[in-house]
């Protein structure tokens, strides 16, 4: 057989094996859709707010990327809203939050205000958090989305949702 054909067939075979391996053998994982740019309108009820929060938590905010038992890079947040009360009473706490909701807000927009022991950036003795502030570039949540995430965390922990919904407030006022 012609050398050229032999070499060409050999190369095609190698490429074929690599392709087959990547397409058939390794598990097919479909990447997530890009997160939606804007929240679809102002949430009108607590349920909608919590739903938006869950969406942001898993999507645009990318919180679950680190706050998961698999990654183990950041504290788990199932109980965060519940233990926030105790966090601000701890002696190491130097932040400005006066209640649980404010603590959550502070942790989102200024993660280094208080770092849960053991979760600081390497070599900083837990003074600097590796977490980016959620209002900054790569994540860039707006005020509604931050509120929604706090509401979601409160719902998750089973405590009362203290975030007020604009629409709900006006409705009550009208009554």
């Amino acid at each position: 057989m012609n050398n050229f054909i032999k070499v060409a067939l050999f190369s095609l075979f190698i490429i074929g094996v690599y392709t087959l391996y990547s397409v058939k053998i390794i598990p097919p994982i479909t990447p997530e859709e890009p997160p939606k740019e804007e929240a679809s309108g102002q949430p009108a009820t607590v349920e909608e707010l919590v739903a938006l929060g869950e969406q942001v938590y898993n999507g645009k905010g990318a919180c679950a990327l680190c706050h998961s038992p698999v990654a183990g890079r950041a504290p788990l947040l199932e109980n965060a809203a519940l233990i926030a009360e105790d966090r601000i009473k701890e002696r190491g706490y130097k932040g400005k939050a006066a209640n649980a909701e404010e603590y959550l807000f502070e942790s989102l927009v200024d993660p280094s205000a208080y770092v849960v022991p053991g979760f600081g950036a390497a070599g900083t003795k837990d003074t600097v958090s590796p977490m980016p502030a959620v209002v900054e570039s790569a994540i860039g949540l707006n005020r509604t989305e931050i509120d929604a995430v706090i509401a979601y965390l409160q719902q998750l922990a089973g405590v009362e949702v203290t975030i007020e919904v604009e629409g709900l407030k006006t409705e009550e006022a009208a009554r």
Binding site: P69, E78, N79, Q155, L156, A157, G158
Partner: peptide, 8 residues
């Protein structure tokens, strides 16, 4: 799979 700690 591992269950969540809380469910509603």
């Amino acid at each position: 799979p591992a269950p969540p700690p809380l469910t509603r």
